[in-house]
Computed example of a mutant assay.
Amino acid sequence: MKLKICGMKYQENMKAIASLKPDYLGFIFYEKSPRNFTGTIAELPSGIKKTGVFVNASIDYIAEKTEQYGFKAIQLHGEETPQFCRELIQRLDVIYKRIEIFKVFSIKDDFNFNLLKPYEGIVDYFLFDTKGKEKGGNGYTFDWSALAKYPSKTPFILSGGIGLEEIDKIKTICKTDLPIYALDVNSKFETQPGLKNIEELIEFKKHIYPSDKRNKKTKL
């Protein structure tokens, strides 16, 4: 199971978090977010996939940022249609090798999984986040029991308010047959928006990824 750490914002913090070798680091391009990214991304190990997070952005804007920052994955957090996703993939594939596409759906207590069908075979992964006031980073989990009805074989990313308090719940849901591809963490590991607490992330990885020898802080 992969690990994505989202909402990165500060260079020195990026370097510290990168020392843990997460599989993905997310950078949010949404002006209404307190984690909106406008700076320079620090040099990262090649194994970390930089991920651009967008909310109802234009294909031109996403392509521009992808070229600027070298994204390997794109997370669509708005009301992007299947046709938009298809056109975005076609646009990016002209210039780059295949870029991974995550399509976000927000859940509170229940969810109509029929909404996923038009995206099947287009996007690489679904991402389930908590439905709340903000477009992500709401700081609390949705009812994971809703995922028991998940009908698809498309792998998904579990997101929304995941922190140290959810360790037991994560271990439980990982024992199911659900195709969980990755965990996506953000606000529950912050000291302020965009600034991650490396000690708490080390603790999290120690419990969820116990065989990972990288569960220690690397001197910079």
Rank of each mutant, 00 (worst) to 15 (best):
I95T: 13
K97L: 06
I99T: 07
E100P: 01
I101K: 02
F102T: 06
K103P: 03
K103I: 02
S106Y: 15
S106F: 12
S106W: 05
I107G: 01
K108N: 14
D109I: 09
D109R: 13
D110F: 10
D110Y: 11
F113A: 02
F113C: 04
L116A: 03
K117P: 06
K117N: 10
K117F: 11
K117L: 12
P118N: 04
P118S: 05
Y119I: 04
Y119N: 03
Y119L: 02
Y119R: 05
Y119V: 05
Y119C: 05
E120D: 13
E120T: 11
D124T: 03
Y125P: 08
Y125M: 05
L127E: 02
L127P: 04
D129K: 03
D129S: 02
T130H: 03
G132A: 06
E134V: 05
K135V: 15
K135A: 12
K135P: 00
G136N: 00
G137P: 02
N138R: 00
N138S: 05
Y140P: 01
Y140Q: 03
Y140A: 00
T141Y: 01
T141H: 00
T141N: 02
F142P: 03
D143R: 07
W144S: 03
A146Y: 00
A146G: 02
A146R: 00
L147M: 14
Y150M: 08
Y150I: 07
Y150D: 07
P151L: 04
S152M: 11
S152P: 03
K153Y: 13
K153G: 07
P155T: 03
P155R: 04
F156E: 01
I157A: 10
I157W: 10
L158S: 11
L158E: 06
L158Y: 08
L158D: 07
G161S: 02
I162A: 06
I162L: 15
I162C: 09
G163N: 05
E165M: 01
E166H: 05
I167W: 08
D168T: 09
K169R: 15
I173V: 14
I173A: 09
C174Q: 13
C174W: 10
K175Q: 15
K175D: 13
K175L: 14
T176N: 10
L178M: 13
Y181A: 15
Y181V: 12
A182I: 12
L183K: 04
D184G: 14
V185Q: 12
V185R: 15
S187A: 14
E190H: 11
T191Q: 13
T191K: 14
Q192P: 14
Q192F: 10
G194I: 08
G194A: 10
G194P: 09
L195I: 00
L195R: 12
L195V: 00
K196I: 03
K196R: 09
N197A: 10
N197F: 11
N197V: 14
I198E: 12
E200Q: 11
E200A: 08
I202R: 09
I202K: 12
I202L: 07
E203Q: 14
E203F: 02
E203H: 12
H207M: 08
I208E: 07
I208Y: 04
Y209A: 06
P210D: 07
P210N: 04
D212G: 01
D212H: 05
K213E: 06
R214G: 08
R214D: 07
R214N: 13
N215G: 10
N215S: 08
N215K: 09
K216D: 00
T218H: 14
T218N: 13
K219N: 09
L220V: 10
